[in-house]
Design a binder for these strands. Sequence first.
DNA 1: CTGAAAGCGCTAACAC
DNA 2: GTGTTAGCGCTTTCAG
Lengths: 355, 355
Amino acid sequence: MAQRKQAVTIKHVARDAGVSLQTVSRVMNNVPNVSPEMKRRVQASIDRLGYVPSIAAQRMGGSRSYIILAINDRERTIADWQLRQGTDWVDQMLLGGMTKCAEHGYRMLIELVDTHNDHVERELGAALTALQPDGVIITPPHSDNPQILALLQARAIPFARIGSTGADGLGGIALTMDDEGSARLAVRHLAELGHRQIGFIAGPADYQLSGWRVDGWRAEMALHGLDAADSLLETGDFTFEGGTRAARALLACEPRPTAIIASNDQMAFATLEVASALGLDVPGDLSLVSFDNTPMARFTRPSLTAIDQPVAETAARAVDLLISQQRGDDADPVPMPINVSGSLVVRGSTAAAKS
Amino acid sequence: MAQRKQAVTIKHVARDAGVSLQTVSRVMNNVPNVSPEMKRRVQASIDRLGYVPSIAAQRMGGSRSYIILAINDRERTIADWQLRQGTDWVDQMLLGGMTKCAEHGYRMLIELVDTHNDHVERELGAALTALQPDGVIITPPHSDNPQILALLQARAIPFARIGSTGADGLGGIALTMDDEGSARLAVRHLAELGHRQIGFIAGPADYQLSGWRVDGWRAEMALHGLDAADSLLETGDFTFEGGTRAARALLACEPRPTAIIASNDQMAFATLEVASALGLDVPGDLSLVSFDNTPMARFTRPSLTAIDQPVAETAARAVDLLISQQRGDDADPVPMPINVSGSLVVRGSTAAAKS
DNA sequence: CTGAAAGCGCTAACAC
DNA sequence: GTGTTAGCGCTTTCAG
């Protein structure tokens, strides 16, 4: 059992420096009104004693908890982990979010929340009161969940919404990864390769970004004078099976599309399989672009040309804003939504259309 | 800024149930001496009010923090995340550890610690005093780091060591994934396929498990009457480059090994490349078995026969023991080290030796 | 079996 | 500028 008392507390430092607790606290928190002299003296004691404040006590004292909570969909996340398909969304969130948190002395905690359950409110509410995070990051498909947003609003906890434009006016820091622009990037790449029949496998409707990607596809198709016919659009559910169905439907069309954009890697893999089963060569007979650029995109045959989603960077941005916001660093009110653009990584699955 | 006061506290529940704070606390903590009647009444109030205790306050009160800290190597972990090679060690730790924590009302927090730096002690020490975790999980290559172990001992924080036999007597709960047995499994599989020249690419020396795998290889080779010659053993560093060097060395030997076991997937991929560059067919001319079975093992051509490391299960086990130990559930003193065995997943990279 | 008191380490609010 | 005083919400004593 961890001992009840802490080794070196603020009291020890105060005594050692010959000042009051409050002064030490002030130094720790970088409060303006401290004489440089005092500051140095206290800091010296802190360093000598190796004092580190207890975040539990800090929270109890009424200030920050130094915890940022990252909410992810339980079912999907656990499935991704169990299936071991190489989805590294969580890793990228940690890479960006956790390291940024560390820079500011914060910790990032992952919390899995079940949406399907109507306990969302109870479940998330419990986590919030137990942890009392200083900020919350919500990820798709939760980023626009009104229940969650309302709860956060009610508790006055700052939150960032990844994959949301925040157009609903439900508050929070809105960040997107430029889904529409990314889709356009994919279409442009294919159009420039001479493709005219460019199919699109959309993501499920409960992800707002699914719609944006479709929008981008439509817009860019139009820009190139191409017909974004309904028959060129199928919807998947981000799974291999869903991708298989969608790819089959798309490739059964006449005229057959010469290129397909899949809204995530899993569905792209499925498309690869379907093409192969149909005797179609990729990229000879069919060019393929996917979204996400998870690790396996490099390992398929051929490797996948893919839209890289800047998950780490977006998470880092979210953390940064959350922390500076609640610190009152209202430097420049950032325009919403914040847009972190992805990029197109060209690999082996795309080639010039046969003429 | 999060409000200073909590919505519903233990006080409210006490008043609502018409009992003292203490009684509520007792009910919450399942302390023996409470009359069933009382218990029911209090529980009813808790439920009605939706009371959830603040973990910060719980910790302040002198009890648990409900936090388990998982220590990972900073450099390696960040590199894995940035390289996006599909290493899902952290994900599997979370899958097993976090879900098990959740079952007990605990949270798992990942902490990246830099070993190379001699600040280990300061760095980890700071995390420990800031967070005051109820338990710590140490992962390779830290599991046997005497500095870390001493620190944990000194602070009397229960800890679990993944990938350690605990033979050093430095305390803690020792868990291994049966590295020796797994290596034997790999050798046996190959021997049964008729291979006699079975090369081994070991992991770096700072990972204890590297040695165990070599031991397993040696032992099983002997068992099958095969010569574990020094020329059949090369050391890599778990990277692709290191694997490349090792594979080249191995495949330059005369007689050339007909099978190779690589201590992780990255080095196996490298071996695949080297073989291909040498015009060797896998598994026709060379059989290959790897360790880890990360997601990409299924995606190479051919797919990799691999040892699956039960990371999730091991992490779950560690959490379980940590929690029950510090709860004083000294039911049956588990024999150390705890051994969670992996399994061999046979895929396309192994075949019968040419006779 | 239950209650009352004291205190955990820290910070906000107010004095000086 | 700095010190003093009250808590924060909970649990551990210790009484009854």
